[in-house]
């Protein structure tokens, strides 16, 4: 469990990134911090592993104040995945994944064996192990980033817009992959994004932030969709534009089996209404 207790952060230039922020992040679930730029979401994330120290307030991991922990030791037991993978360009994929275990004194052969298993976990071909990051696609680099984040088998995984720089198809694939990994491993994931759809897909708990790290609304995706607390949230999730209220449009109902086409408040066809939920997508079935 991660607890923010009245946390504020004022940067040396005087700007107040986060003001009196309090939140509890339950263990073994995914919490998504979502907001536009300037909402302080990345600052909040980076306070958990002490990449940023708060000006006031406390951050507790399982009731232990992180301010009293050695930053290096703390960071080594927390996985961190960032937007542009942050891979070391001069090291191969396998060396990148094994970096922290080797720093922690794990034997190289053991660390490499574990790194190969992690490539399986994130859905990468083991044949890529000796490649350099520059030889991988953006999506592959992000997978390596996730594998590296998991390398020390951390309880906590911090993800800072990890899928922000890849194209939509690959992003979709990576999101499904993360859901699958989370089903298997049940980490405490803190995920930062500006994409509300991504937040609703991945988050058990979604925290919508206004400028300055103020919580506009926190809850499950269903709670937020059903009851946007104010106009800001309604606008952020797209409810005010009718994006979230769907109806069956008789004019569009067609096809041999009489598929009922769903249309959103803006008149845009968004999908087909079925009586049964589709079978869960297996990762391999994802479009290329």
């Amino acid at each position: 469990m991660i607890t923010f207790d009245g946390v504020s952060k004022r940067f040396p230039d005087g700007s107040l990134a986060v003001d009196d922020f309090s939140l509890t992040i339950p263990s073994r679930t995914t919490t998504v911090l979502v907001g536009s730029s300037g909402s302080g979401k990345t600052t909040l994330l980076r306070m958990i592993n002490r990449m940023v120290d708060p000006t006031s307030g406390r951050i507790l991991i399982d009731d232990e104040d992180v301010a009293g922990l050695d930053p290096v030791k703390l960071r080594r037991r927390i996985g961190y995945v960032m937007q542009n993978s942050g891979l070391l360009p001069h090291r191969t994929v396998i060396d990148n994944v094994a970096t922290v275990p080797i720093l922690e004194g794990v034997k190289k052969s053991e660390a490499h064996a574990r790194a190969l298993e992690l490539l399986d976990t994130v859905g990468l071909d083991r044949g890529l192990a000796k490649r350099y990051p520059a030889q991988l696609s953006g999506g592959q680099q992000q997978r390596v980033g996730v594998a590296r984040g998991l390398a020390v088998d951390p309880n906590i995984l911090l993800m800072d817009e990890p899928f922000g720089a890849v194209d939509p198809l690959v992003r979709d694939e990576l999101q499904q992959e993360l859901l699958r990994i989370q089903r298997d491993l049940s980490k405490t994931v803190v995920f930062v994004t500006h994409d509300i759809d991504e937040a609703f897909l991945l988050g058990d708990q979604v925290v919508i932030l206004r400028t300055g790290g103020v919580i506009a609304q926190a809850g499950t995706p269903a709670e937020i969709l059903a009851n946007p607390i104010d106009e800001f949230v309604a606008s952020f999730v797209g409810a005010d534009r009718g994006k979230r209220s769907l109806h069956v449009d008789p004019a569009h109902t067609s096809g041999e089996r009489g598929e009922r086409v769903l249309v959103d408040g803006g008149g845009r066809a968004v999908g087909i209404l079925r009586d049964e939920a589709p079978a869960p997508r297996s990762p391999g079935a994802v479009a290329p």
Binding site: G123, L128, K130, R131, L136, E173, P283, V286
Partner: peptide, 25 residues
């Protein structure tokens, strides 16, 4: 020593990107 051997040369990035369908050990 770092250069890729023949098996790696054959595996191209596109198939690798979809390798999620491969059975994992």
């Amino acid at each position: 020593q770092g250069a890729s051997g023949p098996p790696q040369r054959r595996s191209d990035s596109v198939s690798a990107e979809n390798s999620t369908s491969l059975p994992t050990q």
